[in-house]
């Protein structure tokens, strides 16, 4: 039980987040969401934007490691 604490926490967290996510998308269909820019009013646009931005940031960051990452004692050499 003790070893799986984090795993079970992670699982239930994932479950709740997915549930909230689904609710938020459903809510989008119940009313017209006013935005400053009309294309942002498409159903689920912020959700899509958030998901894609996040993946983009992580992937580009990972790729930047090729250029920016050095050994820990780089400046001491």
């Amino acid at each position: 039980m003790k070893k799986n604490d984090l795993k079970s926490m992670g699982k239930s967290f994932t479950k709740y987040i997915l549930l909230i996510g689904a609710l938020l998308i459903l809510l989008d269909f119940t009313f017209h969401r006013h935005e400053y820019f009309s294309f942002a009013e498409i159903y689920g646009f912020p959700a899509f934007f958030g998901f894609v931005s996040f993946v983009f940031i992580v992937m580009l960051g990972k790729w930047l490691r090729k250029f920016l990452m050095r050994k820990e004692d780089y400046y001491d050499q």
Binding site: T14, I17, L18, I20, G21, L24, I25, L27, D28, F31, R33, H34, E35, A40, G44, F45, P46, A47, F48, F49, G50, F51, V52, S53, F54, V55, V58
Partner: peptide, 22 residues
Amino acid sequence: TLDHVISQLQLLVFAIIAFLFL
């Protein structure tokens, strides 16, 4: 406002989902 809260929550929650997915 409802617009604003929903928009912000969608952004954040789906970014978290992206994290869990990755």
